[in-house]
Design a protein around this nucleic acid. Structure first.
Lengths: 329, 329
DNA sequence: CGGCGGTACTAATTCGTATTAGTGATGCGG
DNA sequence: CCGCATCACTAATACGAATTAGTACCGCCG
């Protein structure tokens, strides 16, 4: 590994370019209210390049009073490609507007209070719900806090209400003529925040359509669980099931297969996420694809407003959800 | 709400506690070489609590010359639960030793040079390979850089060589009596870094066992691709296939099903990742489970050494790979 | 020729913390 | 009862960039 030499500061650059440190700052920040001659400007830039000068983020944000870092707190959420897409889009959009978006995993008993100040963010974005003490502390330092982004009233709902997912599933199944529906709920408590919203959406849709409430059965990601759930639904006269996600749906497919139950003839199944494996199952799985770019862009716009930056020149977002109909429904 | 206009500084705390700012610093940093009376100590802590004082990370790292932030640069890698586990473990272990581990997504043409200085990290960890200019710039500021963590010679190999994955797959199939093997390669170029290593491991194992080199067929995550690949293997007399990951393996299962080919009777298949869906497929998929905690802990230990911190009191790591034998092989 | 405005800079100060170099008070050996 | 060490602090400074308040120089008007 390289030996660490002394840090190159703005003063070093100034010396090398034969100007004052203030001038270096003016040039690098392209300050319109300062007139800098072209020659000086070039001399500074050349010195910057030659010395490999990198400004100190610490000094800058100390002086400015705030950094341009957006800190996203990620609780122990199950991995999903939708979430990954969400994160990437957020990074991208914020990055284009000059904000640096970083992610911090917050599970496992580490004291949040000791972690986030090190990053000195301008905005904190919590994907889970923060406890009040932490939230209070963050706000108190003048850092903008957007709490519980993924929650029922979270900001992400601006672009995508998870209840719409359940709604879309139910309406699809109803349109296929099913009247007695089941809901394949997830067991993993880490999904609770989202799971509750999706189920609500499904129940609400049933109500709106004049159907009885769906028969909710928890399912974990095992063949046995799928088998048992399918058994309970058939006993209850259910002919179609909306699953929390594709993996639950695949567990149900597995259960139906074990019982020799025709899908979709005797039981229709709809998943969520449109995982690559959805197309590989037999029958191929009907699924609700989520375009996380939509809520992510909405959230980014809000953050930018919060940070006092102009909104990005975004293309119109398009729909957040798309039903991909395959063989299972 | 409180009118939190001005930031609460150490000086405010000092004033409130009737001591000097230096004393506040001594108390909060628990400096052993300074003797502070118990009364003063409590007064300071009480004032800290009452005023809701949060130290400025910017000022601290400016003064100290370095922060305790570890910045992990994540290129556009496909989402996987192993990677997620890797990140979480890294965060956890580093967090326990007082380092704050944050992640930055680096795809999409954003200029790295303008992003990372804002975070002012002590260590930069690049999961992909950095281009030389960026690497040079980072090193020049005295920030420790660990480049290409996931690469063939990357540091993560300390705990897990991806070649072992291919090796394990091949040895398993050979032990089942197969002699003519196939390899289901992945198409997604974002997987290249890892894919190359796994394939190498598989080829090397064949050589070591005196088997002919595996017939490599690229497979994407579609039924058609799986179908075509299986066709090519059967034509070539292949009886067992190691797949790059479980999704490729599931595509192959789909292809075999379409051709009416018995698995594992006519074609054995082994995947990698042991996704939840592996157990749900028919036949259930044999797979290599990866315990990302092992390489993550190894990497964390190295980072801690780099940052001059003591190694964590870790339990012995255990094996990084585990073959989960199910019905497909 | 004095003054006025604009250009192109510079000197000095600031942000909040950690650290160094003291300072006054007390205890204690000789 | 002086000197010396120890205790419990405080004053002052440094970190590196951004910003404020100038300053020197030039051209131009009257």
């Amino acid at each position: 590994m390289g030996r660490s030499l002394a840090r190159v500061t703005a003063r070093d650059v100034a010396r090398a370019a034969g100007v004052s440190q203030a001038t270096v700052s003016f040039v690098l920040n392209e300050r319109a209210d300062q007139s800098i001659s072209e020659g000086t400007r070039r001399a500074v830039l050349e010195a910057v390049h030659r010395l490999g000068y990198v400004p100190s983020g610490a000094a800058r944000s100390l002086r400015r009073g705030r950094s341009n870092v957006v800190l996203c707190l990620i609780p122990d959420i199950p991995v999903s490609q939708a979430m990954e897409e969400f994160r990437r889009t957020l990074s991208q959009v914020l990055g284009e507007s000059g904000l640096t978006c970083v992610f911090l995993h917050t599970e496992g008993g580490m004291r949040l209070a000791e972690l986030w100040p090190h990053v000195h963010p301008a905005v904190v974005l919590s994907f889970g719900r923060l406890d009040d003490a932490d939230a209070e502390q963050i706000r108190r330092t003048g850092v903008a806090l957007v709490d519980d982004v993924l929650g029922p009233n979270g900001v992400a709902a601006h672009g995508l209400d998870q209840a719409q997912v359940g709604d879309l599933q139910v309406r699809h199944l109803a349109a296929r003529g099913h009247t007695r529906l089941g809901y394949g709920a997830v067991v993993d408590p880490r999904e609770d925040a989202i799971a509750g919203q999706r189920l609500c959406g499904a129940e609400e849709a049933c109500r709106a359509l004049g159907l009885p409430a769906p028969v909710v059965v928890p399912v974990d990601y095992t063949p046995e669980s799928g088998l048992e759930a399918v058994g309970r639904w058939t006993a209850a006269g259910v002919t179609a099931v909306a699953a929390f996600n594709d993996i639950v749906a695949l567990a149900l497919l597995s259960g139906a297969r074990a019982l020799g139950l025709d899908v979709p003839g005797r039981l229709a199944v709809v998943g969520v996420d449109d995982l690559p494996v959805a197309a590989l199952a037999r029958p191929a799985l009907t699924s609700v694809a989520i375009h996380a770019t939509v809520p992510a862009t909405a959230l980014a716009t809000l953050i930018l407003a919060e940070a006092g930056k102009p909104a990005p020149a975004g293309s119109p977002p398009g729909p957040a959800l798309r039903l991909v109909v395959r063989g299972s429904s």
